[in-house]
Amino acid sequence: MSPFMKHHLFWPLCVLAALLLFNLCYSPDFFSITIHDGHLYGSLIDILNFGAPLILVAIGMTLVVATKGIDLSVGSIVAISGAIACLRISSGADQNSMGLILGSVLLAVLLSLVLGAWNGLLVSGAGIQPIIATLILMVAGRGIAQLITGGQIITVTSSNYAYIGSGSLAALPFSIFVVALVLMIALLLTRRTALGLFIESVGCNPAASSMSGIRAHWVILSVYVFCGVCAGIAGLLLSSNVSSADGNNAGLWYELDAILAVVIGGTSLNGGRFYLTGTVIGALIIQTLTTTIYMIGVPPEITLVVKAFVVLAVCLIQSDAFRAAIAARWKSRHYPAEKEMGRHVS
């Protein structure tokens, strides 16, 4: 294999390109972008705009997965943050006042920070397995979101708040800039400082990194906080896009899509390596896939079946055992014992 093919972005980009190519063949004006009233319109812009919350959540999830963790509570945090912001705005006298909106946004972000810190404390402080620790907030968080909204859908009539999720800046959706900003911050922090190395080393072996002077507890705590904040911002984007908050359905299954995006992007769930750009491409693949399915007129209900096969295909391609099994078909010699051991030891 050429070094080009071995690059971690090779397979995700191939999948994305194949999806886009398919769309181009199916409807030739897929790539066309038109300008209306100074805003850009087109399928590609839609994919970026609707994919923005997922990309945000997935960026946070990437860092958590890099420490060999997982955060199941992001969907609930998305719901809670949207709910608290909408509740505060809808109870205000003037829903368009800038102070109120900034205050609500800040409150929502702070709350998601606290929720992220709760997850982080359970994982790093109490030493609970990540999947379980975040399961607590996943179950209870959905209830908290419903408690905030009172089981209803809170609608707000604030054009300033709606700007966050559906407004546009310099002809592009505002949400894209939010995502770009968060991605830049994450990239700078992890690739220009030693933090990224710390995260990877904690993901490989927390005990060894502690011994070598890395404060593993703090690293783990901070990635969960970051993930919580990302999910909180995603919740703001999502709720402001539809100008309402729904405690039941907002962010439902987001954790699964986000984990999927991370895995498609080439980050292993075993920790120790992460690719933020891969994750972004993974999230875009998921969003493009959804758009494609809608566009070609497959009933939306079957989306899940297609998604299932994509997940399986991606996982199989990434599985060493599967590739080895395929490769073994062309080899004449077999070492059954070695194969059996390797499967468990690796």
Partner: peptide, 18 residues
């Protein structure tokens, strides 16, 4: 194929629901 149970059963979940 040594894939994590979490992911495989997640795909199974999508598949059955679909």
């Amino acid at each position: 194929f040594a894939i994590q149970p979490f992911i495989v059963t997640l795909a199974g979940m999508f598949l059955a629901r679909g």
